[in-house]
Amino acid sequence: MTTTQLPIHSDPEIMGGTPVFVGTRVPAQTLLDYLESGDTLDAFLSDFPSVTREQAIATLDAGTALLVAQVARR
Rank of each mutant, 00 (worst) to 15 (best):
P27L: 06
E54V: 10
T52K: 12
G23A: 06
T2D: 15
G63N: 14
T52S: 15
F48N: 15
S50E: 14
R53C: 04
E13C: 03
I14N: 12
H9T: 12
F48H: 15
D47G: 11
T4R: 08
P7L: 00
T64N: 14
I8N: 04
T52I: 05
V71C: 09
L31M: 08
P19H: 03
R25V: 07
D33H: 12
L31P: 02
P27Q: 08
V68G: 01
A56Q: 06
Y34V: 01
D33I: 07
F44L: 03
L31Q: 06
V71A: 15
A58Y: 04
A65C: 07
Q5H: 03
T4N: 11
P12E: 13
P19V: 01
I8P: 06
S10M: 11
G16H: 02
T30A: 13
Y34D: 00
L60T: 00
T40Q: 02
Y34I: 02
D39R: 15
L45V: 00
V51I: 03
R74I: 10
P49R: 00
L45R: 05
T24P: 06
T59W: 09
I8V: 14
A72D: 14
A69T: 06
S46M: 05
F44G: 01
T3A: 09
S10Y: 05
T59P: 08
T30W: 13
S50Y: 05
L60Y: 04
T4L: 10
D61H: 11
L35T: 01
T30I: 08
V22F: 03
V68K: 12
D42W: 08
M1Q: 09
L45K: 05
I57C: 10
S10A: 12
S10F: 06
T40H: 03
G17D: 04
D47V: 00
H9W: 10
Y34K: 07
Q29H: 11
A28H: 07
L67M: 12
L35R: 04
M15I: 07
R73V: 01
I8Q: 09
G16R: 06
V71S: 12
